[in-house]
C-alpha cells in the first residue's frame, strides 16, 4: 500500500496506577483502511484509542495524525466510545445526542441552529434512525443506541473514525447496517479503526488488522497477517480459527 500514513504512534506507553497497560507501542495506520484492533479483554484496546485521542495521557511516546499532534487535527477525527461508557438514562433524545456531534465545530457558547439540526437529521437518516429522533434514549434498544452513537460521529464529517466495539450487543440487522456504513466510509477514502471482538468476521469486514495484548503483536493487511500464529501469540492459547479465504 502506498497510501500516506494517517495515524502514527511512536513508543507509546500508558499506565493506570503505575501498572503498564500499553507497552512501547509503535503503529502506523495507512489512510483509507478499515482496520480491526483485536485482542483479549483487558489487552488495552480501549486505552490505545483513548490515548490516541488525547483522553488519556501517556507516560511516554507520542501520537500524530497526518504528521501533526492530535490537538491540531481534531477536526479530522471522530470517536464512537464504547456504548457502556455513558448513562443511557440521561434525560435527552436521540436527535439531541446526534446533534452533539456538531458541538466541536461550533466551539464554545454558540448554540446549534438550523444547519446543525439538519446535519443531525441527515446522519439519523443514514443510520436508519430518523423515525426515532424524538425518542428518549433510554427507550432505545442496544442496537439503536449504537446507531445513535455512530450517527453522532458521522455528523462530525471527519477523515478518521475510531470506534470502540460498535458491534457489541447489537442485533444482526444493525451489525450489517453498521458494517455497510463503515465500508462506505472506506470507499470515500476515510480511515476507520474499530475495536472488534468477533474473530470470525475479521476477514469479511476488514482489510487491515492490529493484534494487541499490552504490546503490539502484529499489524498489517488481513490477508498477510491474520493467521493462527498471530492469534495464538495474542490470545495466549493455541488458537485455531479456520478462516476460509
Amino acid at each position: 500500500m502506498s497510501n500516506p500514513i494517517a495515524i502514527k504512534v511512536d513508543d507509546l506507553t500508558v499506565a493506570y496506577n503505575y501498572k503498564p497497560v500499553l507497552w512501547d507501542i509503535d503503529l502506523e495506520i495507512p489512510e483509507g483502511v478499515l482496520m480491526a484492533i483485536v485482542g483479549p479483554n483487558g489487552a488495552g484496546k480501549s486505552t490505545l484509542i483513548k490515548s490516541i485521542l488525547g483522553i488519556l495521557k501517556p507516560i511516554a511516546g507520542s501520537v500524530s495524525i497526518y504528521g501533526k499532534p492530535y490537538k491540531k487535527q481534531r477536526d479530522l477525527v471522530a470517536y464512537v466510545p464504547q456504548k457502556g461508557s455513558v448513562d443511557w438514562d440521561f434525560p435527552t433524545t436521540a436527535l439531541d445526542v446526534v446533534t452533539m456531534g456538531t458541538y466541536g465545530a461550533l466551539g464554545w457558547i454558540k448554540r446549534p441552529g438550523q444547519k446543525e439540526k439538519k446535519a443531525a437529521l441527515e446522519a439519523l437518516e443514514k443510520v436508519g434512525m430518523l423515525p426515532f429522533k424524538g425518542r428518549q434514549i433510554s427507550q432505545l434498544s442496544g442496537g439503536q443506541q449504537q446507531r445513535i452513537f455512530l450517527a453522532r460521529a458521522l455528523v462530525q464529517n471527519a477523515s478518521i473514525y475510531f470506534m470502540d466495539e460498535p458491534f457489541q450487543g447489537v442485533d444482526a440487522t444493525t451489525e450489517i447496517a453498521i458494517i455497510n456504513i463503515l465500508k462506505e466510509l472506506r470507499k470515500a477514502g476515510k480511515t476507520v479503526v474499530v475495536v472488534h471482538h468477533d474473530l470470525q468476521t475479521v476477514p469479511e469486514y476488514f482489510d487491515w488488522v492490529t493484534f494487541l495484548n499490552v504490546k503490539k503483536i502484529a499489524t498489517g493487511a488481513v490477508k498477510d497477517i491474520f493467521n493462527d500464529d498471530n492469534l495464538t501469540k495474542t490470545y495466549g492459547i493455541n488458537f485455531k480459527v479456520s478462516v476460509n479465504k
Partner: peptide, 22 residues
C-alpha cells in the same frame, strides 16, 4: 444559560467532550 451546551455534553459523555476540543 451561557454554557448550557457545554454542561449538557459534559454530563452525558465527558470523554467524547474532550475529543471535541472542549
Amino acid at each position: 444559560l451561557l454554557f448550557w451546551k457545554e454542561f449538557k455534553i459534559l454530563l452525558f459523555d465527558a470523554d467524547y467532550t474532550k475529543t471535541l476540543g472542549f
